[in-house]
Write a protein that binds this DNA or RNA. Sequence first.
DNA 1: AATATAAATGAAAACCTTTCTCATTTACAC
DNA 2: GTGTAAATGAGAAAGGTTTTCATTTATATT
Lengths: 136, 136
Amino acid sequence: MESQDLRKAGLKVTLPRIKVLEILESAQQRHMSAEDVYKALLEMGEEIGLATVYRVLTQFEGAGLVSRLSIEGGHAVFELEDGSHHDHLLCVRCNQIEEFIDEVIEQRQRAIAAEKGFQMTDHSLYIYGICRNCQS
Amino acid sequence: MESQDLRKAGLKVTLPRIKVLEILESAQQRHMSAEDVYKALLEMGEEIGLATVYRVLTQFEGAGLVSRLSIEGGHAVFELEDGSHHDHLLCVRCNQIEEFIDEVIEQRQRAIAAEKGFQMTDHSLYIYGICRNCQS
DNA sequence: AATATAAATGAAAACCTTTCTCATTTACAC
DNA sequence: GTGTAAATGAGAAAGGTTTTCATTTATATT
Ligand SMILES: [Mn+2]
Ligand SMILES: [Mn+2]
Ligand SMILES: [Zn+2]
Ligand SMILES: [Zn+2]
């Protein structure tokens, strides 16, 4: 039940928050922009403002319910947080997004930050390319 | 001579292009936003419009003279292209940028793209953190 | 050196995603 | 049920970047 997730996250249980969570949980695409979520809500018959969608997604991010990807050039993309850190491959033709985890890379990043005297707070890695389907 | 670089890149030799190239070559900071370049031009006494700075930087990118970093949340940053690919560490406090190259990461990225059937066209890796100076 | 012409420029408007403002509505503790 | 703080919707605003369009400039040609 979404209400429980919201309460657990310290957020008041409101219709926009329930519906946005529903969308994220049931959507065919795991990675969605605020606009995507907004459109899905409209199709669902829910008249929730885009500003509210942004607000809710940002709150969800703060509460650890979703994470935000900052993709090159474009808009932000959100996905349900499942606790497992991973990075992304993006198809530049069809915008499909795939996920991967690579411990070697994770470890090298930590080593590089340490080497340079940086206290690492975050990192972002995107591999851009043409997915199998889109290779003519 | 900047004129030669421009001609070689197939660009007409104009004052804005020469001056922007001069700025990039002589600036104390290797990574500059369009706004940074614009301000440097003003200090130099050159009244070149911000729109032109953006246009010129984008053309330079197309010509392979500069590369563009798309940093999280903020504005784009440009740097002279020197042929050597590298990635970046960014201080979230002072915005200082450091560079690094890691062949292990590069190779893992290629392997992951291959594994997923992606024809890799590009990749971007940013490590965010607090630099040595900024650690209280 | 003067001319023609396509390209480049400056200023301002437009763009696009995201955030903010503020009046109104809602959730929830009492 | 009531009261109050929090959340919402609509639209304005923000901020970086791009576009538009009239004017200027670089360069090929005479
Ligand atoms: Mn993901
Ligand atoms: Mn660099
Ligand atoms: Zn594809
Ligand atoms: Zn710093």
